[in-house]
């Protein structure tokens, strides 16, 4: 049976958003049809390139949480694991538009792509210029020669951070877009799942894994990964994940990276720090310096047990943008 702290499953998203805004009125305000667009209260910021995002519910703090100074401006919110509709996305774009155009920045998923493209075409009739950057950081979801097909997972957090910081510099839409794409290109993530989650309206787990099994590379909606096997020790899991990430984007002595150890929901901070400790040692061993590591719950799949590791390769443009100030309840620098 489904064991969740719930009222009516159909109110899951609405009640989540109500609570989120009640807890953080300084950061979030609801707008759009049925209050399904969240904006930072000072949006649109006049003269700044707007950043609109969106996606299904069930991943907090992604996507809704990363709104604020130095981050995104508006977010269209769908049902659990399903894309928000075109109208909501158009509303999010309008809410983010401060006169300098809007970057649509979101994870690469079929429904979101189609709907966000449509929304962009709609607001074109209102003379709002938009661009698109799709986050494609999940190395397990397609091979290196098919990077544009990869899904977006925890790397979204870095992309919001970088694009938001760039927009705050007063850069124009093309420059913010180029920098956001640069952030996507610098990001690699891989996840591991230990237990599934249950979509409230469905009432059943999205997949099943044996008592002693784990799946490397599983997506945040339970999409199949690259390898299922027996659960192993933390360091062995971290090593396998690091090898996948480094094979995809090698690092050399002297490189600087940020590392995100992310819980998919149920995995505790302790286990994330056990993993981070290994990753830090291992990267130090090859002469790579870690800057501004993030350890915690950043991109989740409700109560899924598991984690992801993201390596974000820095350069002379990305590092200052990563370290620039930002403020939301889930990320402060």
């Amino acid at each position: 049976m489904m064991k969740k702290i719930l009222n009516e499953p159909r109110n899951y998203v609405a009640e989540t958003l109500e609570g989120l805004c009640a807890a953080h009125p300084k950061y979030f305000k609801r707008t759009g049809a049925e209050g399904r667009v969240l904006v930072r209260p000072d949006a649109p910021v006049a003269g700044k390139v707007g950043i609109a995002t969106g996606g299904g519910s069930g991943h907090l703090p992604v996507f809704t949480g990363y709104l604020g100074p130095g981050l995104a401006d508006a977010c269209a919110i769908g049902e659990v694991f399903s894309s928000p509709g075109v109208d909501l996305m158009a509303d999010a774009i309008r809410a983010a538009h401060g006169g300098a155009g809007v970057l649509r920045l979101y994870g690469n998923y079929g429904g979101d792509n189609m709907n966000f493209d449509m929304a962009g075409e709609m607001v074109e009739f209102e003379n709002i210029r938009t661009t698109t950057v799709r986050v494609t950081d999940d190395v397990a979801s397609a091979g290196p020669d098919e990077r544009p097909k990869r899904r977006g997972i925890a790397g979204l957090v870095y992309c919001y951070k970088i694009a938001g910081a760039k927009a705050d510099t007063g850069a124009d839409l093309d420059a913010v877009t180029a920098t956001a794409q640069r952030a996507v290109d610098a990001c690699r993530t891989v996840g591991v799942a230990l237990t599934p989650c249950t979509v409230p309206a469905a009432g059943r787990p999205t997949f099943s894994l044996g008592e002693d099994e784990m799946e490397i590379g599983m997506g945040i909606h339970g999409e199949p990964g690259v390898r299922r096997g027996t659960l192993r020790a933390a360091d062995e899991i971290a090593e396998e994940m690091l090898q996948m990430l480094l094979a995809d984007r090698p690092l050399a002595a002297g490189d600087r990276v940020s590392v995100l150890c992310n819980s998919l929901g149920a995995t505790p901070l302790e286990e994330l720090y056990i993993t981070y400790r290994y990753v830090a040692r291992r990267l130090a061993g090859v002469g790579v310096t870690i800057v501004q590591p993030l350890v915690g719950r950043y991109a989740t799949s409700m109560e899924m047990t598991g984690m992801s590791v993201t390596l974000f390769k820095l350069d002379e443009e990305l590092e200052p943008l990563l370290l620039a100030p930002c403020d939301c309840p889930f990320l402060r620098i």
């Binding site: 399903s82 509709g85 075109v86 109208d87 189609m114 709609m122 009739f125």
Partner: peptide
């Protein structure tokens, strides 16, 4: 006529997120 067709497209996107509706709306746009 262009703006009227845009309104028609929005009527399709407002009722469902189905691929068929989205495709018809795309054609109208």
């Amino acid at each position: 006529v262009g703006l009227a067709l845009l309104r028609c497209a929005q009527a399709f996107t407002s009722v469902s997120a189905s691929t068929y509706g989205t495709l018809l709306a795309t054609g109208l746009m």
